[in-house]
Design a protein around this nucleic acid. Sequence first.
DNA 1: CCTACCGATCGGTAGG
DNA 2: CCTACCGATCGGTAGG
Lengths: 193, 193
Amino acid sequence: MSQAPGGAGGQHDRILDEAAKLFIRFGYHGISMRQIAEAVGISKAGLYHHFADKQSLFLAILLRNIERVGDLVDEARAQGGSTREVVARLVNALLVGMVGGQRFIRLAEQDASSLDPDARDTVRSVYRQRFIDPISAVLQGGVTRGELRGVEPETATWLLLGLTLAGLSTPPERASAMATEIVRLFFEGVGAR
Amino acid sequence: MSQAPGGAGGQHDRILDEAAKLFIRFGYHGISMRQIAEAVGISKAGLYHHFADKQSLFLAILLRNIERVGDLVDEARAQGGSTREVVARLVNALLVGMVGGQRFIRLAEQDASSLDPDARDTVRSVYRQRFIDPISAVLQGGVTRGELRGVEPETATWLLLGLTLAGLSTPPERASAMATEIVRLFFEGVGAR
DNA sequence: CCTACCGATCGGTAGG
DNA sequence: CCTACCGATCGGTAGG
């Protein structure tokens, strides 16, 4: 039996951890509550003791992971430095710091269609508030201080995340080098000087 | 006999078109053969007359769409010009030319896990051969001719595709502007000059 | 004997 | 948190 990473300990968190792995690998519809229960080592009914239904479990996973990457953004910002330094810390944290290539962002985008409209709005709102907006603010600050050319901050944020997502498929041992390459491409491009 | 909207003619192609839309929207496990049959306007048994099983249908869709984007790459290369001009035509074709934001690339990556190992290898091989390798060759040529700095062509290809995928979520009327922004970021970055 | 299906139902499994 | 189940729907197939 493995313990919950981060020392949380409870079954609740253990379920979130195991279910997150499976959802990330197979998608919302690709995994059943039975399989999740089996992975956790409890019965399916036991699972329903902790979460009202499949969607509630999925939603809890999405929100928890958004909080986690939101914390990564906060930490990257808090340490200060140039726009490029902040972005470099953030990309590195997303690529290296997320254990085992947690591609939950892709999951959140792809399987948002599996949620009902209310839940989807909640996810979108928190995602924007804790992830997109803070990164946009960093880039906006870079434009204001003349460190970046006049890009639209939100567009630039999406493109930076596109680069980072593409980089997530790199093997863990090359994650750091990939982060460096992403940051360089984002700021300098690939054109010859 | 049957009136096929949209060109090719046969029921076979009509099924591929309708099923592709649904798979792209809901994922492999998110849509049933019943729903696909209903969308096409035939019975589920009729569907099984054309495709042996769900996986065969899915595989046929993936391969057909890989061929299509492969053709887009070929066309972009055939017209010649600088590396940047070729890349600009390609990104534009992927963003604007693919009707209604066909995000099949994301589908191919995400739901590859729904295929058995043989089918997955086939997809990966054709994807690489018709899509990744030709783009890498374009970028490699750019490095050789000194139009690009010394990047690893395959890494740069993945990052370019990451940017393009991120741009796919843009509304159709802004697709052209997004393509321009992606190409500029890819070649020049966002750093101030 | 072919094609392009149909209504009905198979054995299993989904979320609850 | 379990055993024991449900209504419905799953992917796939029967005879005609």
